[in-house]
């Protein structure tokens, strides 16, 4: 090919080999990273399918030849209270989520759209609460709640829910700040009170934020381990506390395969919710720039 011919073919520019090599290397790196990231979960699932006798076998069983799906049936057997534990966890997670979202949305709306003396200072207080180490408030909270007999009940979660959460208030405030003022003015002109404006105009617009906030809080309460561990007795405790130490045989020895099966069942709802809502979650994190 002469130089002139090459110049006449501007539309067929072959990708330089260097770029191809780089691209292939990038994909290899991404796939390796995926393997590293997913491996612990994969290993957990595989371990839940072992025979109990394979637990201490050496060399280890990575892929069980005869997967023991019956481990899952045994893990939800009534003697281990699996469904009761799920019920306990939901009794915390669901009301706490609804209350937190509702309260935070209301406060977020007020901080975004209303004017009042002291608003700025109060908002700084909201933000600064995110900086207080949990232990500093949890210990006195525990002392208070045990004095009034509310430990070993789910009331602390409901009360925390009613008071909202700094993170969620911030989330809603950011979102409500972006809504056009005209909408509100029109409602006011029509004689719509502030609570109705919030309820009938702002809330219906905030589906994605409500979803993000609800998913975050549900995830948080479902996955929390420390607070239920100190606040609740064995009878009231949550699945998260239980999977890390229940499932023992009559001699008090842990039955590992059942623990693993229950752990997988414990993760599963979170994964399903995440897969369905990942777009919202990604947006929610991205728009706030906050994540503990």
């Amino acid at each position: 090919m002469t130089q002139a011919q090459a110049a006449m073919q501007p539309y067929h520019v072959p990708t330089p080999p260097g770029v191809i090599v780089k691209r292939v290397l990038t994909y290899i790196a991404l796939i390796l990273l995926t393997v590293v990231v997913i491996m612990p979960v994969f290993f957990l699932v595989m371990a839940s399918l072992r025979l109990e006798s394979q637990w201490m076998q050496y060399p280890i069983v990575i892929l069980p030849k005869e997967p023991q799906w019956s481990n899952y049936v045994k893990a939800v057997d009534p003697q281990y209270n699996f469904f009761k534990l799920v019920g306990n966890t939901l009794q915390i997670s669901l009301p706490a989520t609804v209350l937190t979202v509702a309260s935070s949305a209301l406060s977020g709306y007020a901080f975004a759209r209303l004017h009042s003396p002291g608003k700025r200072a109060l908002f700084i207080l909201v933000l600064s609460m995110m900086m207080v180490p949990g232990m500093v408030t949890i210990i006195p909270n525990f002392m208070l709640f045990s004095k009034i007999g509310l430990t070993d009940t789910y009331w602390p979660w409901y009360l925390w829910g009613i008071s909202g959460s700094a993170f969620h208030i911030f989330l809603f405030r950011q979102f409500f700040s972006t809504i056009s003022r005209d909408l509100e003015d029109a409602a006011t002109v029509d004689g719509c009170g502030r609570f109705r404006t919030f309820w009938q105009i702002f809330l219906p617009l905030s589906g994605p934020v409500i979803a993000t906030s609800a998913i975050f809080h549900f995830q948080w309460t479902w996955g929390s381990w420390f607070v239920p561990n100190i606040f609740l007795s064995a009878n009231k405790t949550t699945l998260g506390v239980a999977v890390s130490r229940y499932y023992v045989n009559p001699n008090g020895q842990p039955i590992y395969t059942l623990q693993m099966a229950a752990t997988v069942l414990y993760i599963l709802p979170m994964l399903i919710i995440f897969l369905f809502a990942q777009k919202h979650i990604v947006q929610g994190i991205a728009t706030t720039g906050l994540k503990g």
């Binding site: 990231v37 612990p40 979960v41 957990l44 995830q219 479902w222 996955g223 929390s224 381990w225 998260g240 506390v241 999977v243 890390s244 752990t263 414990y266 993760i267 979170m270 994964l271 919710i273 995440f274």
Partner: peptide
């Protein structure tokens, strides 16, 4: 990994 409860 972020959606997996810490205990698990």
């Amino acid at each position: 990994p972020s959606v997996i409860p810490l205990a698990a």
